[in-house]
Amino acid sequence: MFECRLPKAEVLKKTMDALKDLIKEAVWDVSAQGLSLQSMDSSHVSLVQVTLRTEGFDTFRCDKNIALGVNMDTMQKLMKCASNDDNITLKSEDNGDLLSLIFESPNGEKTSEYEMKLMDLDIEQLGIPDQEYSCTIKMPSGEFQRICRDLSNIGESVNITVVKGGVDFSAKGDIGNAKIHVTESSNVDNEKDAVTVEVNEPVNLTFALRYLNFFTKATPLSGQVSLSISPDVPLVVAYEIEDLGHVKYFLAPKIEN
């Protein structure tokens, strides 16, 4: 038996919004540690990894590890039936083929129960190595979203150059070129507005904006985003979900032939 309850459906609605354009089907792995999901996009260019830790739930019961195969579109549609303030309970039997989603209004006067058919999915799991990165940039998530969106008007790729104290995002295309320079904040009252740039060694890498724009669908989950970059390895774009976990995206770089 698996059953968990979150005080606000909003966070799970936002999590589904962050995933559904990138992946069509996925498996939620349920264990005593919480819920987790890992999936590549269909082109095998990027990977998304989600962790929602047990401690962030109101209640969490998992008698036995289970895998819930879901169609992301369907789950997102059903999640949309919840109001942001509703509390939400997810429930499934150990060998069941249904996931129950129960939404309860804050005043307890309305309870909605939806049952979603689960899928038997065989999704390849990749080992994500723990590693140190040459550069880590933290910046307001809305600012990163804006940069990716704006540069998409110019080209298909963004070149990210990180040096001490700042980062350049640049794009080239048939209509012209663009360069956006973001400087590390010197003094910030509100942590969410801060830009921090940690540089062990300067890096310069190119990534497809199409995928970065998919990743920025996670913007409503967190005021800040972190970008971890090292030469010739996937970029990590991470959004922390306060008190609950994170959504991390990994994007393979574009490299000279």
Binding site: L126, V233, F250, A252, K254, I255
Partner: peptide, 14 residues
Amino acid sequence: EKKQKSILSFFNKT
């Protein structure tokens, strides 16, 4: 011209 690498070039299947 830069070529898009696959994520599978970096992470192994488990």
